[in-house]
Design a protein around this nucleic acid. Sequence first.
DNA 1: ATCCCTGCAAATCGTTTGCAAGAGC
DNA 2: GCTCTTGCAAACGATTTGCAGGGAT
Lengths: 145, 145
Amino acid sequence: MSEETKFFEYLRRTGLKITRERKEILREVFTSHRHFDADELFLRLKGRGAGVSRATVYRTLALLVRSHLVRKMELGDGRATYEHVLGHPHHDHLICIQCNRILEFHHPEIEELQQKVCEEFDFKMKSHSQQIYGVCKECRKKQSS
Amino acid sequence: MSEETKFFEYLRRTGLKITRERKEILREVFTSHRHFDADELFLRLKGRGAGVSRATVYRTLALLVRSHLVRKMELGDGRATYEHVLGHPHHDHLICIQCNRILEFHHPEIEELQQKVCEEFDFKMKSHSQQIYGVCKECRKKQSS
DNA sequence: ATCCCTGCAAATCGTTTGCAAGAGC
DNA sequence: GCTCTTGCAAACGATTTGCAGGGAT
């Protein structure tokens, strides 16, 4: 089932409406595979004349998050970063503090250990996030030259 | 060497000044062992008539972070959370989404694996943070009753 | 028709900053 | 005395919201 269909189904189920603006945003979110923030998305839409306001971008992103088609992350620089879930199983992030590039990694063993930590604390995990900040390969290459 | 001395030394070294306001903030930060945000700290100071403005709280927290006596964390709710470093070696957090309690954990094996991930990506780690969101023991007890 | 949605601009919230007066060294 | 500091209030940037007109079902 396509992401579009999933979203429409979510809307229907929740008594919400399928509008031109929501379609535009949906298309923009799923045609790129990068991480983005709300304003970037707004500007991309504006750039191609999609006619969607900033307010609607925020409101629709909230819906996409609620319907689990998009993940929202607070990476600690004040604004939220989003990524769509399509073809992106759970993962964590390496964040370059020089070029802001975001790399993804997944390490099942770490996940297992997190689970163990929760058991020790009798803590029911709902989600987790893990960020490693540092300097990526490319930036280090540039620096050393 | 006391935290106060360390901070004063940092100030001296950097050509900054030791003021009444900075002493007040320092005292307040180190007499409690909880996590706090800037506004909580401001209110505690106000509560005991310390006569320090919100602006100065923010400015001094920045200095304390720069001097490595205090750690700043973005836990994803919009505002920053702080904790002093005294007697708190590096650790990560379990965050209860019901009562907002913050538990600390440290797992050397996880750290090792993170280091391994960085090597794979040829990524130079500078810092990392890891949060596990969920429901703590106490809140679960309350719910089930 | 009935809600739901939208754009706009104003409001919010945490945080930062310009400025003029005041304190440390 | 030269700087660094402070408080205040205004400025900020990301995000949210009230409202009144327009659209989906």
